[in-house]
Design a protein around this nucleic acid. Structure first.
Length: 479
DNA sequence: GTTTGAATAT
DNA sequence: CATATTCAAA
């Protein structure tokens, strides 16, 4: 038995035919025939069992000897089907990632990559095992969750919550998992002092302009690694306030007549640890408004798709993430929008126009705005001297990993995001390629060649409890 | 290597 | 169902 792999650019690249035959001479003959056309599994064994086994093992066809030229000639059909199926599968995954049933041309909330087959011959082409879809608890979805929990009251158990939420595709396990985290979060963050009114206000403003309200909130991502590469986020990273004296700055982005101060921080801190050091927190207009600012080229997806469509037709998912306690904008903007943002920011950097004043008098170093498509910087720089312990993470310390217990500055604490926050990125999402990071007190030279670390992956978490309460109230009103 | 959110196991 | 553990992404 031998195999021949034939590759010819005339046909779709990469197609391969496995020819199996005990006689090398025959194989050579097959190879010659294949030359002008291309590929296949061929056997003199015409037993049905053999055919079935071959197909079951992934063969898309089974040829009997003697070969006929037209069999080879039409071999490409199978290849095209496979390619088509592959694309389709990928598309489904992408759609799922953006996760709205309102997506034009999209599917339901949950769609198995192999639920159907356009060609109608799925049993003839190998499909890898279905990947489980990961539920991303977007703000909308989480709000529905909270709403359901409140509505049900003490009886709130995963099953009932699931029923009340009535989200197609969402499973009891999904809810249970989320409920677990939610409860832990609630325990760890009893009613804290109200504070940071400014942030709350801003938050509400953002919510009013950018939040989708009708769209299906479930965002599913396939666990397929391939889609991950296209998942990009723009992240505004907050800093822990315990180093605020050294790292906080206010950034005036001259994007409009108004003065927008963006407070950059390097790592989030629990709101109950905060001493309300963000009195002037504002987002740049491009982030905080719709078309009111001077940068009309940037629009949030939900503007053009009021029903909450988060994305149509683009494989990349760029999220402008605001890790400030004040939350941010959701849903994600698409990649063009993010690129525009990048261009703007970079241009501003070039023009040296962005930093005007600093919050902390102790801050003697010039401020800087970092714009990078790499994400590796913030955390590492924090770790390398700015923070003694960035274990302090969120208002909702939630899970203690048994294996990681304390005494160290790493690993022991997990967080649960302030659930009602309006953060830009759903806390289930992961940070990506773009960081828009402002910072001070770090000598620019020391960072120029520094690799970037991803910022917090929990953009919601440091949201103020105040916001939490406000959101809760809002939800109660709506009930 | 660490941290995280969600899935899975108990 | 609740909680603990594991997994995979970043």
């Amino acid at each position: 038995m031998a195999k021949i792999v034939s590759e010819d650019s005339e046909f779709p690249a990469g197609l391969r035919v496995l020819a199996i035959d005990p006689d090398p001479t025959v194989l050579e003959s097959i190879k010659k025939i294949c030359k002008p056309f291309k590929y296949r599994v061929m056997s003199a064994d015409d037993a049905q069992s053999s055919v079935m086994k071959a197909v079951a093992d992934g063969a898309c066809d089974y040829w009997f000897k003697p070969l006929r030229e037209d069999m080879l000639k039409n071999m490409w059909i199978h290849a095209v089907r496979n390619i088509k199926n592959g694309d389709r599968q990928k598309r489904e995954n992408d759609d799922s990632e953006f996760g709205s049933s309102s997506v034009i041309g999209g599917r339901g909330v949950v769609s198995s990559p192999r639920e159907s087959d356009e060609v109608g011959e799925s049993n003839h082409s190998y499909q890898p095992p279905a990947k489980k879809l990961r539920v991303i608890w977007t703000l909308d979805l989480h709000r529905q969750f909270v709403k359901a929990v409140k509505q049900i009251g003490d009886e709130a158990v995963p099953k009932k919550i699931l029923e009340v939420m009535n989200i197609p595709g969402l499973t009891r396990d999904n809810v249970a998992s989320h409920l677990q985290k939610y409860r832990t979060y609630l325990k760890s963050t009893p009613n804290e002092a109200k504070q940071q009114n400014e942030m709350s206000r801003l938050n509400n403003n953002i919510q009013g302009t950018a939040e989708s309200s009708v769209g299906v909130p479930v965002r599913l991502e396939s666990l397929t690694p391939s889609h991950v590469s296209s998942n990009t986020q723009v992240t505004l990273n907050p800093a822990p306030n315990h180093v605020s004296n050294n790292t906080l700055a206010t950034l005036n982005l001259p994007l409009s007549d108004a003065s927008y101060n963006t407070q950059a921080t390097l790592n989030p801190a629990p709101s109950h640890v905060f001493n309300n050091t963000f009195p002037n927190l504002h987002l740049p207009p491009i982030l905080a408004t719709n078309n009111l600012g001077p940068t009309p080229t940037i629009q949030f997806p939900n503007e053009s798709h009021p029903e909450g469509v988060t994305h149509v037709g683009h494989p990349s998912n760029i999220t402008i993430a605001n890790n400030f306690p004040c939350g941010g904008v959701w849903p994600p903007v698409d990649i063009q929008q993010a690129n525009v943002l990048m261009d703007i920011l970079q241009q501003q950097q070039r023009q040296h126009t962005m930093m005007h004043r600093q919050i902390c008098p102790m801050n003697l170093q010039p401020s800087r705005l970092m714009v990078s498509r790499k994400t590796t910087f913030v955390t590492q720089n924090i770790n390398h001297g700015l923070l003694s312990s960035h274990i302090v993470t969120s208002p909702g310390v939630s899970q203690i990993h048994g294996a990681n217990i304390p005494g160290s500055t790493t690993g022991a604490v997990r967080s649960f995001p302030a659930p009602e926050s309006n953060a830009v990125v759903p806390y289930g999402s992961r940070s990506g390629d773009l960081i828009y990071q402002e910072y001070t007190s770090i000598p620019p030279e020391s960072l120029e060649n520094t690799s970037f670390a991803r910022g917090s992956s929990d953009p919601n978490f440091s949201k103020g409890i105040d916001d939490n309460n406000i959101s809760m109230e809002e939800e109660e009103e709506s009930n």
